[in-house]
Design a protein around this nucleic acid. Structure first.
Lengths: 238, 238
DNA sequence: CGAAAGGTTGACCAAGATCAAAGTGAGTGG
DNA sequence: CCACTCACTTTGATCTTGGTCAACCTTTCG
């Protein structure tokens, strides 16, 4: 299943057009946009806010698959039913498009398939990164990767190109510690302790409960390992 | 990046045709087919044998991403360089096709893009399963999932449709314990101990070091959790 | 037959989970 | 507007799973 398309790519305008005069839906924090098991009838484009994609097992264990931001597409499913849940973290606004409409556009617009394929591959790559994190990295490393990922996602959503834009090092964390824990394959207490440890090492400072400032980007990247979301990825055309 | 296409799908013949008169390459166990960082010039179709896809971090930690079998496609990359390594586990044979040729076919053949998209989504789904495993499941559960995954992969590669075909419960394990460990995000000792535990619980018996017999399929599936590779996935047209 | 690689087992250790309690803060009703 | 409440977070104590280190098997292959 394809929960969400990663960053827009030059050429993504083809798909943005699909949402041009599409109906818009506003979501309150916590509101469910997609419930796992529902018929996969629509695809969406996020106009603003933050959403969370998750999959919950029969016994209640939940794995958060990704956080979504402005200009992310979502709702693509391999089957005719969604296998994942999408909820709003903050107040959010999405444009809604019938899946069939989107598919039609995909088949007709020149180069659309190719662009879509590129976008899908990008998602695949992000998932491989996540698999590497969950399989190989420690709690502290995962949290470092996560903060860099949020920083990057925010810059993309805001269309900021420079690595050191003013305020770029303030990372907003509107989700709960438990959301972060379920994303990183940890417990919420461990997430708390890892934040404390990053602060102790002067890599970050905590502005407040839902905002963190990166104080040492280089060392944080070093801790996170190879993955640098800024370096390899080209910025999209907004 | 798209290391490998999962199971063939009805319609995959379009792509199999791309390999019809393609040059064939034989691989000895351990031989490298794709080295991470090499230019992504070719795509492959596996004619026989087992391959292993992995990604290794700067510090040597290795995450195995998947095992590949007959009729799996591989070599699709998001960029112009491979970001993963593919090696033969057993002696193997692959058909090689220039990436450009494949892309051309993709754009010309009717319905090819659509079929390819479905296949890609299938891979996405498998990766979500893997993320769920690594993030939420215990060592024992992961090993149970792994055995069911191998059982399923083998049945697909052999074109066996029934769930209880004779010999279907003998699972071949040609890879090393370390390969399994790196796939499951564990250490090889833990894999050993988990095999012992599954045997102690009478869920499996060890035929020899590289073959295991599933003695209690139902309970093993129960232990693995929701994921049943047999149930939701349609079998491909061979 | 012997060396080397791979696999198992045991003893011990540590990262992270679990359990418990106290602190913080945002939203609500008085 | 304030105080209360409830949800979220942090911190501490303890426990468990899985990791690490080391020794000993077993298999394969030269």
């Amino acid at each position: 299943m394809l929960a969400a398309m990663a960053e827009p790519l030059s050429g993504a305008d083809i798909f943005l057009a699909a949402f041009d005069h599409a109906p818009v839906r506003d979501l309150a924090p916590g509101e469910v946009l997609i419930a796992a098991g529902a018929p996969a009838a629509q695809v969406f484009n996020i106009l603003g806010g933050m959403l969370i994609v998750s999959r919950t097992g029969r016994d209640g264990r939940r794995q958060v698959l990704s956080f979504l931001f402005r200009d992310n597409f979502l709702g693509f499913a391999a089957t005719d039913h969604y296998s994942f849940t999408v909820e709003a973290v903050t107040a959010a606004r999405v444009a809604c498009c019938a899946r069939a409409d989107f598919d039609r556009r995909l088949e007709r617009a020149a180069g659309a398939e190719r662009t879509f394929r590129q976008m899908t591959f990008r998602v695949l790559e992000d998932m491989v990164d996540m698999i590497y994190s969950l399989g190989q990295r420690t709690a502290l490393e995962r949290l470092a990767v996560f903060l860099l990922y949020l920083r990057h996602a925010h810059r993309l959503a805001e269309g900021i190109a420079e690595d050191h834009a003013p305020g770029a090092d303030d990372v907003a964390l509107p989700m709960t510690r438990e959301d972060i824990a379920d994303f990183l394959g940890l417990q919420k207490e461990t997430v708390s302790r890892s934040f404390a440890e990053l602060e102790k090492r002067s890599l970050i400072s905590r502005v407040d409960n839902h905002c963190v400032r990166i104080r040492a980007l280089g060392p944080l990247r070093e801790l996170a390992g190879v993955v640098d979301f800024a370096a390899p990825h080209r910025l999209g055309g907004g």
